[in-house]
Write a protein that binds this DNA or RNA. Structure first.
Lengths: 233, 233
DNA sequence: ACACTCAAAATTGTATACAAATTCGCATAC
DNA sequence: GTATGCGAATTTGTATACAATTTTGAGTGT
């Protein structure tokens, strides 16, 4: 049991599995069985099974009756769907954040930006440090949604961001574009701090659109992306 | 086992419980235990337990460790949150439907409108028939999202609509306003059939906004709504 | 060499047994 | 009469046993 963040085994198994999937350590298309995971995490099948249920509900795995579970494979269509939704949710959440952010909230966002800059300034950084910057950058959006105050919206956006994180990290994408991402994040936080609701929302939406187009362009530039993306079923 | 729509007990238990909750037969705030439900549905605790997990993930029940589950209580804040999100999702889904609907899709929507009209024309209709009209009216939105083609958006909207259906039906609301609802639904379907993306989206958003304001007004007119709505925690 | 059959293995679906934690009530002390 | 403490009952958390179904592969017949 490498991670035990929650009280119940079910929750810790869920978090462990989600992390393994989102970070690509268990790649899309990989078959995962209850027994394997139970043995790997030193627990019985029961909590593993319940974790699988939640993962399936979150769209991270798909399971067919009596045939086992497979980490969700994604194709360009699903990618576009996710980013289309994320544009709406992220835009709205950012508007709410601009309307509601307290001084403490603003400081928290600035701290996260500073952490990104710090990680970016490390020369010849490792994959681990690159992943951390990606993580903080995505967490920024989660925190913005939290600040916005709509709990339901926050929860939905977190689910979408999990998928986006998996997409991006599994493909190890756009390492040269992170500078642009940091600038856009700064612009969003600036607008939130200024309390400019419309500007913050539009910058967030533009940021998501830009990320989507950027990633799509890079994916199509990769001649072998067919190997990563599942064939459309 | 009154309903067995799926292959697995877990799914049928989930559907049964969801129906009981959405229709208010198990009201918000009611305590539900695994043993009770297992006995009531003549199954063991295991499938009941897994159904509870999914219900909790969908926000229909809340469970605290070793304390049991309670049907989610809702307050005005959560109501506003849900309708705020629904306005976005429903609007976008309707735009997509207007862009993608085939002739068969359009016929299907028209059929659903006709069914609403038929149910509305019944004189002195029973609660059962009123519920059916509500059901078809909400299913109309589900079908529109399905036609839109964004699977992820469809799934998210269905979850929100479950909550909205519970809100509305539990409160037995706005029986006199159904005529207006039918007219708005007709306007939405008309725009979809005409392929007018912008108009369809705007009509859908206006419809959701109108429903929200309408329900809020009626709720606040009820002097005793405090008895139905939980105190803000 | 290929196809077909059947049995065994793998895997999930369900039930049940037990453990741990919380809640509730009753008895007792003051 | 009230408060406190302890134990029984309730309820979920976890593990394990068994059932049902699908897949796989070996073996045989042509």
């Amino acid at each position: 049991m490498s991670k035990e963040r929650k009280n119940t085994l079910r929750d810790s198994v869920f978090e462990s599995l989600k992390a393994l999937i989102i970070t690509g350590q268990i790649p899309p298309g990989a078959r995962v069985t209850e027994n394997d995971m139970a043995a790997r995490l030193n627990v019985s099948r029961t909590p593993v099974r319940e974790a699988f249920n939640r993962l399936e509900r979150d769209g991270l795995v798909v399971g067919r009756p009596r045939q086992g579970y497979v980490v969700t494979e994604f194709n360009l269509t699903m990618f576009r769907e996710a980013f289309d939704i994320r544009e709406m949710l992220d835009g709205r959440a950012t508007e709410l954040a601009a309307a509601n952010a307290t001084a403490a909230d603003k400081a928290r966002l600035r701290d996260m930006l500073a952490e990104c800059e710090r990680l970016a300034a490390i020369p010849d950084r490792s994959t681990r440090e690159q992943f951390e910057e990606l993580q903080v950058g995505i967490d920024l959006h989660r925190v913005i949604a939290e600040i916005g105050g709509n709990e339901m919206l926050h929860g939905m956006l977190c689910g979408i961001l999990d998928k986006c994180q998996q997409y991006v990290w599994t493909e190890l994408l756009w390492l040269d574009e992170w500078q642009l991402t940091r600038e856009e994040h700064t612009g969003i936080v600036d607008a939130i701090c200024a309390g400019d609701v419309a500007l913050a929302g539009e910058r967030a939406r533009a940021h998501v659109r830009g990320s989507r187009e950027n990633i799509l362009r890079l994916l199509q530039a990769k001649s072998d992306y067919q190997g990563f993306f599942a064939k459309a079923s």
